[in-house]
Write a protein that binds this DNA or RNA. Structure first.
Lengths: 221, 221
DNA sequence: CGAACTGTTGAGAGGCTTCAAGCCTAGTGG
DNA sequence: CCACTAGGCTTGAAGCCTCTCAACAGTTCG
């Protein structure tokens, strides 16, 4: 596991890279494992080397609201770390993952010594904030169907399709519902609707995108 | 107008402060003026010295989704500036304001030369991201009534009450609806409901909070 | 193999939006 | 200075979207 492969560390010089490699630690995590929970104190953040992680918040009646899915190259747990407060979200492995743990002191060291790294972090946060704000607008103004269609397109962008146009992320209906922000039953009904209109095809958790143009139209994009 | 009053510049040394003071420019903005619009290119960000600014995105049918209200000490326009992309939100004055414009080059200079400033910016972004994520959970899971109650409490935290418990921000019903993420009529009905239950009192746009405990209960906090 | 969880479908209820109509307020122009 | 207009505010009614509850089939895993 060599961290120099990752874009977020591309600005580090040799010395910084040596320190990072010394401080970090990699570990394999099984599907379903909680990486950290709301209210816990983190002593570092996690870089995802492989696998998929969901970041979510607990809402009413223990219903999860999924904030984002993180994949290779993404980091999780850095928000509360930088703020030096307790985690206000949880992270769970949904696809067997290898995570690189990077201690707080190392993060601080990099921020203090390498402005390019800081700028990278700033840009990363700005990107996340942009997506969050867009999602707020969608939640407030779009119907379930529109949101689902848009989310499928976003998942396509982030996780891509295989050669049969199948989304390369496997989500339970429950997780999909908690991403779109609706009830499981509603997401199922809308998926069926899209299937009957030949926009997508379903085989269990495999979602094939048959007609991206239609999907885009449904999403109002 | 002396920028050294503001927390976000507390880490600057004398030399940096001189440069900042040289580069910046203050201006008075009338109520209703658009500071920047979605899709525009910014060449700096704005620090709010006085007044109130709303940051919003255009959604379906030109319906605004208000992301946040910014007041003295807050900054707007920095997200797209740091990302060096076109603005993906708009900002409009809703209470006569004095804004300090700080050019991109100055921002970059500070990021490159003062890690404490960068850290400040990182923490600021983390705070905004946290609020955005909490709002996503609320939008997805709470009713209009709950969201309205919570928003009133948040407005109280940010803009405080006068000695008669009146919220020190004057919002149109439309803006309030676009903040909560609902129709104007709905927000009016819920406000009336709260008034009839003696939780709040209304006199035009003035909102008096009579029973914060009840409000907190309604908001499920 | 059973338990626990996920997925699916139907029915009913209710929260919220939309439309419509009227009132009120503030700002404008004659 | 006042009528006028545009936009904000309010209320009612109708109807749809979405949630919840319930029941059951399918699946996974110890």
């Amino acid at each position: 596991m060599n961290v120099s492969d990752f874009a977020m560390f591309s600005s580090l010089n040799k010395e910084e890279m040596i320190r990072l490699n010394y401080d970090k630690s990699s570990e394999r995590w099984k599907k379903g494992t909680l990486i950290y929970g709301e209210g816990s104190r983190l002593n570092g953040f996690y870089l995802i080397s492989s696998g998929i992680v969901k970041v979510f918040k607990m809402g009413i009646n223990g219903k999860e609201q999924i904030i984002r899915f993180a994949k290779r190259g993404d980091i999780v747990g850095y928000r509360s770390l930088i703020s030096q407060e307790l985690a206000c979200s949880s992270a769970k492995v949904i696809d067997e993952a290898v995570l690189v743990h990077i201690p707080y002191d190392t993060l601080l060291f990099l921020i203090q010594n390498n402005w390019r790294f800081s700028k990278h972090m700033l840009e990363l946060l700005c990107g996340e904030l942009k997506e969050s704000n867009e999602y707020i607008t969608n939640l407030a103004q779009k119907s379930i169907r529109e949101r689902l269609a848009e989310k499928l397109l976003l998942l396509k962008k982030d996780f891509e399709l295989d050669n049969q146009n199948t989304l390369q992320i496997s989500l339970s209906r429950i997780d999909l519902a908690n991403t779109v922000g609706t009830a499981t039953e509603s997401v199922i009904r809308e998926l069926m609707e899209l299937k009957h209109n030949n926009v997508i095809d379903l085989q269990g958790r495999r979602i094939r995108i048959l007609d991206e143009r239609s999907l885009r139209r449904v999403a109002h994009l």
